[in-house]
Design a protein around this nucleic acid. Structure first.
Lengths: 274, 274
DNA sequence: GAAGTTACTTTATGGCGTAAGGAGTCGCAA
DNA sequence: TTGCGACTCCTTACGCCATAAAGTAACTTC
């Protein structure tokens, strides 16, 4: 699942970087009927399907249907589903902002970047399932990376370390996004709210593992010592669900710790006294 | 793909926690023919398939075949493929060590934990594709979490923060593991070594994006300022491939930064002077 | 023995990605 | 003007997949 169409690497890269004729749907092409579709249209439709119905619902048939075509019509424009996934992945990364205030303190810049990254992945949770399958190397992904590196350069740390911090920050953001996406999907699939779901599971856990407290003492101690606002039912509008709020707080706290760690590195580098 | 079998939650939990008769393959059961399989045997076989051939190759047929049965025979023991995935996920987590030196400094403990976690995910890369689909809540996953919390408690930080640090550390480890797994898979699928693959891609990039250096100045500057041992062909044995070494260095550096950040928090908490 | 329960098989349904081949459309060279 | 060849898009078909339904045989309990 979600594997690369490791086909012709050259064709794949040309598609990703759109190194061909500047396509438009209604243009006069060579011989043959005027193309009714375009790579961009297909990619846009596929992204819509994945956004709305999730990765599991993304099939060539579904994408074709959304465009009023059969599944096979897509293969005129795109060599395989794997390539289409690569194109989707890169296209959607165009949403990522590239402009940040990199004149002031780097902390603010990186915080904004991380928050934007989190929201991006929550808008397109399927991206998390593509990316871990293999590197894609498209222009917009590179743009995002370039932005992050630029922000990190404001720390004044050496290139070596910047490179690794970029990886670390990305891992962190994607991990947090994954947890939130998980929570949302669980809520969507079961139809229960987070609280209901969690309550039901806790009850089952008690049934099935009556010795829970003895088996996981540290866990239970932490649970009783930290669970903050269990119900906290916000009366107005739809409150942010429990698990999602949890995950967001992990995001905030974890990001703070990470930036503290970077700050320590900056201080160490500032006084080069190994 | 890789979704939960969100079936009967009670049955699912009973299976996970093995809250039933203590099964053994050849025992005298009730009426009917003696069972030739067992949940454990199926889970073990499924893990073997996923380890050897990857998640994409994990089908009910493949697992059945490995046990000398048809795909349908498995459904006597396991309600669906989704449940089987949950069982695999939890079973494999039994490999995670639970004993660490938590008397000494927490830094060493967490470093060991992270390293074990990385190796674990590299032994079973498919775990990364299961976990982000939804929470599983099995006994061995809980054991792993309990261990991590215990190690974090050695910092003396409050429960609140410990909970979030646990999430942060897990995200980090899984992210790093994902990158390494990616690199390995790319190498396995294409048959090229990392160096070859990367070299070929770079050439294609130059072809397809001749303005690369202008578009991504920060990235290029970092690249030229940091690429450490490009070839470094270790003559003996099989060297660790390039991309994998990169990822491992990100792991080491990122972990260091994270622990530095935790240390900062510990220091702040030690002198409670908000 | 008969009845009931269970392990496992075969068969079938409706999905998937995509290979193969065919029908209709159009630019262009003859 | 005609017809070739390139091109888009369709239908059909193949071999996978998960799994529902129904059948067969083994075994325990009455």
């Amino acid at each position: 699942m979600v594997f690369a169409g490791q086909g012709d690497a050259r064709r794949s890269m040309s598609l990703l970087w759109r190194a061909g004729r500047p396509e438009q749907p209604g243009r006069r092409p060579g011989p043959g009927p005027r193309p009714g579709l375009s790579v961009d249209a297909i990619v846009t439709a596929a992204i819509a399907v994945a956004d709305e119905d999730g990765m599991a619902a993304l099939s060539m048939r579904a994408v074709g249907e959304r465009l009023g075509r059969t599944a096979m019509a897509l293969y005129t424009y795109v060599p395989s589903k794997g390539e289409l996934l690569d194109l989707m992945y890169d296209a959607v990364h165009a949403e990522l902002p590239t402009e940040y205030d990199d004149t002031g303190d780097w902390r603010a810049g990186l915080t904004d970047w991380a928050r934007d990254g989190l929201e991006f992945h929550l808008r397109h949770p399927w991206v998390l399932q593509v990316s871990q399958a293999r590197p894609v190397l498209g222009p917009h992904e590179y743009a995002g990376l370039d932005t992050l590196v630029r922000l990190l350069n404001a720390t004044g740390l050496e290139a070596h370390l910047v490179r690794r911090l970029a990886g670390t920050l990305s891992h962190f953001v994607r991990g947090c996004a994954g947890t939130v996406a998980e929570a949302r999907q669980a809520a969507a699939v079961t139809g229960e709210s987070d609280e209901e779901w969690w309550f039901a599971r806790s009850a089952l856990l008690g049934e099935v593992a009556p010795d829970f407290a003895e088996r996981y003492p540290s866990l239970v101690a932490m649970e009783t010592g930290s669970t903050p606002q269990p119900p906290a039912p916000e009366p107005d509008g739809e409150a942010v669900p429990y698990l999602e709020r949890e995950a967001r707080e992990t995001f905030t706290a974890g990001l703070g710790v990470l930036l503290d760690g970077i700050e320590a590195a900056v201080r160490r580098a500032g006084t080069p006294r190994t």
